[in-house]
């Protein structure tokens, strides 16, 4: 699939001339090669370094803009505005305002790693997407996105018990994002399963919900990971110039 570069030119930046003749040729009307000239002065020169300081963003400087990431991207096929190549370009130039136009979709990367597989420069575009989504959140440009809430809930359980209990994650995630557990499709799934009455499985799920599965003697691993994560998060805030104690 070609990259639809023309889709990156917004209508307000197209020059339309009602009456223009150049060297005897009439070029009036909607002519997409005429782009209004503009001077960009508000570069954020720190942006590339800040994103490179977050996990996954380390190799953004290697990018030579071939577009293999966007070509192979799962999400781009569903939503053409999801464009890793373009975002890496904006970040490296420091065009923060342009990047912020897409701030609410960056988190939608599904980590399929097709980009990382295709990238000839080992940029790790999947990691750059995660770093960028975190940067947007840490800088306060976006609220916490659903996938980040899910990551937090899931990881908190792993840190607490060494294992996860799926029912608990689903309940906590739906509660945090204000969704009802009683949705048509969830009920249909439950009804389908109940009809076949897999007693062993239902007993197993019930047991896990009551007595959370856990790794024994996990306390020391939990403490070591908490200490490490605390250090890392403080280092990230400091790299982004965020004061200690500020929101997230």
């Amino acid at each position: 699939m070609p990259i639809h570069e023309k889709s990156l030119i917004r209508p307000e930046n197209l020059a339309i001339h009602e009456d223009l003749t150049i060297e005897g040729v009439d070029v009036s009307g909607h002519w997409s090669t005429f782009i209004k000239s503009r001077a960009v002065t508000d570069y954020n020169e720190a942006m590339e370094q800040e994103i490179a300081a977050l996990p996954g963003g380390e190799y953004i400087h290697r990018c030579w803009q071939c577009g293999s990431c966007t070509n192979s991207c799962t999400v781009n096929a569903v939503n053409p505005d999801f464009n890793p190549r373009y975002w890496i370009y904006l970040i490296r130039l420091g065009m923060e305002e342009e990047l912020l136009r897409d701030k609410d979709i960056v988190w939608q990367c599904v980590s399929c790693n097709k980009c990382t597989y295709a990238c000839p420069r080992d940029v790790n575009p999947e990691g750059v997407m995660k770093a960028t989504a975190h940067w947007l959140e840490l800088k306060g440009h976006t609220d916490q996105k659903p996938s980040m809430a899910f990551d937090e809930i899931f990881s908190a359980q792993v840190f607490a018990t060494g294992k996860i209990e799926e029912g608990r994650i689903i309940r906590q995630f739906f509660a945090r994002t204000g969704q009802s557990l009683f949705q048509d499709w969830l009920l249909a799934l439950a009804r389908g399963l109940a009809k076949r009455l897999p007693v062993g499985l239902l007993a197993r799920l019930g047991f896990a919900a009551l007595f959370r599965p856990r790794t024994s003697g996990w306390g020391r691993a939990q403490a070591a990971m908490a200490e490490y994560l605390g250090e890392q998060q403080a280092a990230r805030r400091s790299a982004l110039g965020i004061e200690e104690g500020a929101k997230r």
């Binding site: 990551d151 294992k163 996990w218």
Partner: peptide
Amino acid sequence: NWNCCGAMEVKNLDPKLQTY
């Protein structure tokens, strides 16, 4: 006495924790 591998989530908090 195994533990969770980190799945697809822990790496988004910190990749090296997932490695651990």
